[in-house]
Design a protein around this nucleic acid. Structure first.
Lengths: 242, 242
DNA sequence: CGATCTTGGTTGTATATACAAGTTTTTGCG
DNA sequence: CGCAAAAACTTGTATATACAACCAAGATCG
């Protein structure tokens, strides 16, 4: 079997959701309906529904039906994740727009964070990450030129800074702060916000073996983005499907 | 059926793993063996193995068998921290104000998160945490009465709900989301915000061995609070004897 | 001896069936 | 009309069966 049948059903349903044919909280076909449409047994149709439910794409209620869950962008705080992967894994298209890539004299706060001298040259990139056609995150990043001398030569429409950096200088450590802020007009403009709305700002400082590599400010509208995390303290609890 | 059979098998296997009878990377019984031992069909035994695999507790290889996975390392980012300790560690004074402690009919979203029925009774507490004289966080918490029947009898000016819960029902798992929101007027009032300002809202769902224990919404003004975290990618094998 | 084939065990996919449990709609009776 | 009972439909659990894909080890043959 080239591709499993239940996977085909899943793909079909994901497509319907992505193109908006099945909006949030709308009902999706029942197990029996899917079984008939795809000429499979109910158990196979069920498996597709089941797995989509486990992935958080659907929710189901016994006796009522299956429905499209509200999906809001979500990333894990616990792993340093590439925003491009994150968007792709939701089945959406990713695009980056490079606004600036320059060398700057280092502001004092950045100098302290990266272990540079005040006004020493530092690399700076400014990028907007798009999910489909909507800007999801504004990334302002300072990079330590002592550690990453070739940073300016990269094509950041093809590779995200984070991915490039982690290839060149393997991460050993990272530090985060999460804040809720009201964005300035410059940020609003690039996130295409007509009015300032609360935004999450993730400040991330990454370290390689030889010290601080980069300092990034990642700003996302609160209405489009949230951070998620998961901690396991033990083999997870038993029955949580019931 | 009081408890589903596949769940019983899962519990049995979890216990074996927890007590160390089945060490990491050791082989666990095959589908057929489990089916025979528990006098169920192979499909039912399979489901137990399947779900444990999805939870990352087992890994399976076609043609070979099923094995106990290595327990995940956990990072300290977003560690579950007691806000009272956090404030004390900054050298400030902590105080809590209990606004509500009631029993409510369960809203749909809460029911889904805690595995309760819609409109079933659920415990609810509403607390403001103060740092010195300034309100730092509004905590709205729903608690599963099936697991924590004595929740209503506690004195939450003396002990935080989180601390009490972790004593009564040891955490096995936690789930977080962080959002930037604009608080409603009710929240503004209790946080003593004259104008709405961006707030961080941490939604935290905690699990014990028997399922979801509580769902908490922790709202803090962006100007007064931020979340910090630290990740280490250093060579493993260090101290992880927790 | 060594390479190949066979065989038995294991997981993966799929089907048809049955009944339980929950919800909504329809029916029918007082 | 109002209300209760019944029917219809949904998801949830469980079984028995079949075959495919894969792997390891033993058997066979050159």
């Amino acid at each position: 079997m080239a591709v499993a049948k239940f996977a085909e059903i899943k793909n079909f349903m994901l497509t319907q959701i992505e193109i908006g044919a099945w909006p949030e909280h709308s009902r999706v076909p029942s197990e029996n309906e899917l079984a008939e449409q795809f000429a499979v047994s109910r158990m196979t149709a069920r498996r597709a529904l089941q797995e989509l439910t486990e992935q958080g794409i659907l929710y189901r209620t016994q006796g009522v039906g299956s429905f499209v869950a509200a999906l809001k962008s979500q990333s894990s705080l616990l792993e340093i994740r590439n925003i491009a992967d994150e968007i792709h894994s939701r089945g959406h298209s990713y695009r980056a727009e490079l606004l600036q890539l320059t060398e700057l004299p280092c502001p004092a706060t950045v100098a302290a964070a990266l272990g540079l001298k005040h006004n020493e040259r530092v690399f700076f990139s400014l990028i907007v990450h798009f999910e489909d056609r909507q800007p999801l995150q504004l990334e302002a990043r300072y990079v330590n030129p002592r550690q990453i001398p070739d940073y300016m030569a990269q094509d950041f429409s093809a590779i995200t800074p984070h991915l490039y950096l982690s290839q060149v200088a393997p991460l050993t450590e990272a530090e985060h702060t999460v804040e809720a802020i009201l964005p300035d007009s410059f940020t609003c403009q690039h996130l295409q916000l007509k009015k300032p709305e609360p935004c999450l700002r993730l400040t991330r400082r990454t370290f390689s073996r030889d010290g601080a590599v980069s300092l990034a400010y990642l700003t996302s509208p609160g209405s489009r983005y949230r951070l998620g995390g998961h901690l396991n303290f033990a083999p997870a609890g038993a029955t949580r499907s019931s």
